[in-house]
Computed example of a mutant assay.
Amino acid sequence: MSETGRGAPARSATADREVVISQVIEAPRELVFEAFTEVRHLSRWWGPEGFTTTTRSFEFRVGGEWDFVMHGPDGTDYQEWITWTQIVPPEGIVLLHGEYRGDPNAFESFLAFAPEGASTRVEMRTVFPTKELRDEAVEKYHAIEGGRQTLGNLAAYVTEIVRKGVEG
C-alpha cells in the first residue's frame, strides 16, 4: 500500500465512489474468463440469486455491446447495457455498465482474473460517477450483496463445469 508523507495509508481518489468484491473460484483462469466473455455461459449465471437474463444482442470486443434484460424474482424487468472498453485475455476486462447507451449514470467495472494456485481470484472493482450514485446502488439496489451473489453464481457454475469435465 502506498503511503502519504505522514505515514498514513494513501486513499484512492475514487474510494468513496467504489465497491470492491472478490471471490476465489476453484477453476482455471482461462475457464473463469471464458464464462465471463461468452454469452452461452453468461446467461447461465449472471446476476444475483433468483434473477434470470435475456440477451437481446451480444458482441464481445472492445467497443462491442451487450444489451440484455435482467428479470428479478418478483417479476420486475431491469434493462441493462454493457460496453467493453478494454479486454486483456485472460487477465482482465474493463466495462461500462448502464441502463442504456449514453446513460449518464453508467458505472465502470474493472475485472481482474488472477491465478491463485489451481484456482482463480476474481476481483470486481466498480467505480460510480458520484458518491451519491454509489450509495444509492449499495442502499437501494443492494449492490454489494448482489455482486457477491453474482460472483457466487459464477463460482458455482464454473466449478460444476470442472466437476463434469473430471467425471466425464
Rank of each mutant, 00 (worst) to 15 (best):
E116K: 13
R101W: 14
N153C: 08
T53L: 08
K131A: 15
E65P: 03
S43R: 06
Y78T: 06
V122L: 06
V62L: 05
G117T: 04
F68C: 03
G147W: 00
R17L: 09
S109V: 15
V94W: 01
G50E: 12
F36T: 02
I87N: 01
R17Y: 13
T52S: 08
R40T: 13
Y157N: 08
P73F: 13
V69S: 07
T150C: 03
A156P: 07
R125K: 09
A27K: 02
R11I: 14
L31G: 08
T76I: 15
P129L: 03
W45C: 05
R29N: 03
P89K: 12
S2H: 05
E145Y: 03
P90I: 05
T130I: 04
E18N: 14
E26C: 15
A118N: 09
R61I: 02
F51D: 00
R163C: 15
E91V: 12
F68Q: 00
V138M: 04
F58R: 02
P104W: 03
F107N: 00
A8V: 12
A156Y: 08
L111F: 05
V88M: 14
D135M: 12
V166D: 15
V20G: 01
T4N: 14
E160N: 12
F51R: 08
G98N: 04
A8W: 15
P48G: 06
A10M: 08
V127D: 01
R61C: 14
K140T: 11
E59K: 10
V88S: 14
P73E: 07
E59N: 05
G117L: 13
T85A: 03
I25V: 05
I82Y: 03
I161P: 00
T159R: 10
N153W: 02
P73W: 04
T130E: 01
E136I: 10
G7I: 14
V32L: 10
Q79I: 08
E49A: 14
I82E: 01
F68I: 02
E145Q: 09
E91D: 12
F58G: 01
V24R: 02
T54G: 13
A13G: 09
P129D: 00
E136P: 02
F110C: 12
T159F: 07
R40Q: 11
Y78D: 06
E80P: 04
H71K: 09
H71L: 10
I25F: 04
V24Q: 05
G168T: 13
L154A: 03
I25C: 02
E116Q: 11
E59R: 07
Q23C: 07
D135L: 09
A156L: 08
G102C: 13
V69G: 08
T54P: 06
A143N: 00
W66L: 07
T76E: 12
G47Q: 02
K164N: 15
S119D: 08
F113Y: 02
R29A: 12
E167D: 14
T14F: 11
R148L: 06
T120D: 00
F36I: 05
Y100W: 09
D67I: 09
Q149F: 08
Q79G: 11
E38Y: 09
E18V: 10
V69H: 10
Y100D: 01
V158S: 01
T4P: 07
G72T: 13
H142M: 11
F128M: 04
E49V: 15
E139F: 10
A156G: 06
S109F: 01
T53K: 11
D74N: 15
P90R: 05
E59P: 06
R125F: 04
G168M: 14
E91Q: 09
G63R: 02
A118F: 10
G64C: 11
D135F: 14
R17V: 05
Y78M: 12
